[in-house]
Design a binder for these strands. Structure first.
Lengths: 337, 337
DNA sequence: ATCGGAAATTAGAGCGCTCTAATTTTTCGC
DNA sequence: GCGAAAAATTAGAGCGCTCTAATTTCCGAT
């Protein structure tokens, strides 16, 4: 298992160690003749640079770590695409860590990446304390995606969740609904803002008496149980706004289990517009978050900092948009009973 | 951004560099007194071990890299859970790389992990050439998950896809279907075996004349288009066996778009039993692959090799099982027209 | 030929840690 | 209280690479 080293390549090529290093780093000012000599020797020996040594010596890793709150949530997984595309262009490699939906799991991944001395870390949907993230920013460039932040030191990219939630409620009200319940995301990223947007919009429409929130956790089963709770109430809601697509899907399951129809008996609106929501079979009305853009922007912020182009923090907020599909419909007379 | 080093911790604690190293490695034979001195100094300085330096010096990384063919495919993402659980127990950290559904994307991630000198690499659903994997095994421990292999050097863990496909076909035949089409997984991992199982089972049931395969690629849109193809045939199938859940979901969408009902007009069976299939709204009949076990076994094989407990390759095959849900039903008279 | 500056190459000192061997301190039986 | 063995600590040589500074080679101009 022992690997050839630069030293061996140098000997075989009959040049100095330093020259091999220059060739490997694609440095200019190396004659074509020797460059070829080195490349041939490397090829012959099956030489592969040791990034541990390289990074140690150069104090750069050319790597961006991404900590996903939950690898099973398509929303987070889809952010990866934008991150990867932007990183590829900039010549950075991407390593992914799974936070297993727990603050400690996320913090452990951050710690792992810090120990690896990655050049930057993007956290997607982080639930760990902001203080953990700020502490990490002493050692590397941190960007928070999908969670609002007004930190003085950390950059963030996210959609305006308060507005997003309002869009959902406004639309349901427009369809005639009044008993609109919310399945929230508990302590999940963005959950607080969406809860707030829901309440504000309800209040603005004079429906503050109808505000009902059931506790979810951004998972399908969480949505299922929250829906149970809502259905057991004396006056069940005619519409449910769920804090994300996964819990909306769970709620949908529960409602169908109860023998009710969606959207005829209950309308459902989700959040994120993941591939799941777009599946025609589900066809979930939802609030779009431009995931690709979120990912790209996050990488951009890290690159800016790495190039010392900026030192003060930036908080980029993208406007969300409602995507109307088939789980929502106009309230009919029969429903209000 | 410069970080404290062991040297600084040693100075502050008034001990040698070597002693700090011993403490950080939780070595025995360090007095409680000095251990505490070191820990206090480290804490005070905010010291964090540099794994690059550590790994370089120790020639071990305590890290397992996982290359996923596609991070968006829930099947692969779900394998991560088992991998992570087993790795945690063994004290290994897990880093994830996304192959972006392309052989070259996968190969790049393998290369990245090799450059990081990870102790082992698990590839899930790999589509890159076996030769690439075998080449990598010269440098680290490789395990292939979800793809059959009879390599003399690489360990593999997967379910018996031929049998799995037969289960699906047998069941559909049992329900009275004869025109059973297959949406395959193209060049995807396991696709070939499932295609073969399908053909064999059809032939065994005397239905070789009914064999129809539409080209898919393990994605939802692939399934959608393949279903289009099948529906346009003169005699459309009464049942479709898709090579994975994602393409089954796509096929379902297409069938419903065509105004047909599932399972009344067309039965559908998927493969993998991902969380997607389990969603009650979809409730897809499918073939279960025990993902958690696949992941755990893969880690176990790497550990065995790392401990030099075994040198010859092992190919572990798990029996799949049919999970009956709501997308499949008995053929009714009307359907065969 | 000869010289100067640009281009190409190399020497050598780290990067922050591990690990073996050597050294120092502690412990304990008598 | 002494000596030997055990326990604790340390010195120092790498791990495989980068990077600055120094050296050597190359070339065209004179």
């Amino acid at each position: 298992m022992s690997q050839p080293t630069m030293q061996q390549v140098a000997e075989r090529a009959g040049v100095s160690l330093a020259l091999v290093s220059l060739v490997m780093r694609q440095a200019p000012n190396v004659s074509d003749y020797r460059r070829q000599l080195v490349l041939d020797a490397a090829e012959h020996l099956g030489y592969r640079p040791n990034v541990l040594a390289r990074n140690l010596a150069s104090r750069r890793t050319n790597t961006i770590g991404v900590v996903l709150n939950d690898i099973h949530n398509p929303f987070f997984a889809e952010i990866i695409d934008g991150i990867q595309a932007a990183s590829d262009e900039a010549g950075y490699r991407v390593l992914i860590g799974n936070g297993k939906r727990s603050p400690s799991g996320e913090a452990e991944m951050v710690e792992t990446f810090l120990q690896f001395r990655v050049d930057g870390i993007i956290t997607a949907g982080a639930t760990m304390p902001m203080s953990t993230i700020e502490a990490a920013s002493e050692s590397t460039k941190m960007v928070v995606v999908g969670r609002s932040s007004r930190s003085q030191v950390i950059d963030s990219v996210n959609t305006d969740d308060v507005t997003g939630a309002r869009l959902a409620v406004d639309y349901l009200v427009e369809l005639g609904h009044r008993r609109i319940a919310h399945i929230d995301g508990g302590t999940g990223a963005g959950a607080e803002a969406r809860r707030r947007g829901y309440s504000q919009a309800m209040t603005d429409h004079g429906l503050s008496a109808e505000i009902v929130t059931a506790g979810g956790d951004f998972t399908e089963s969480g949505g299922y149980h929250a829906a149970s709770e809502l259905l057991n109430q004396s006056s069940r809601p005619t519409a449910i706004f769920a804090a994300n697509d996964l819990s909306a899907a769970g709620a949908l399951d529960r409602i169908e289990d109860a023998g009710l129809a969606v959207p005829d008996d209950v309308s459902i609106v989700g959040y994120d517009n993941t591939a799941l929501a777009a599946m025609q079979h589900l066809s979930l009305t939802t609030v779009n978050q431009p995931r690709d853009e979120l990912g790209r922007l996050a990488v951009g912020f890290i690159l800016e900092r790495l190039r010392d182009e900026r030192t003060d923090s930036v908080h980029h907020m993208i406007a969300p948009a409602l995507v109307k599909r088939k789980t929502s419909s106009r309230l009919t007379a029969g429903e209000s009973t």
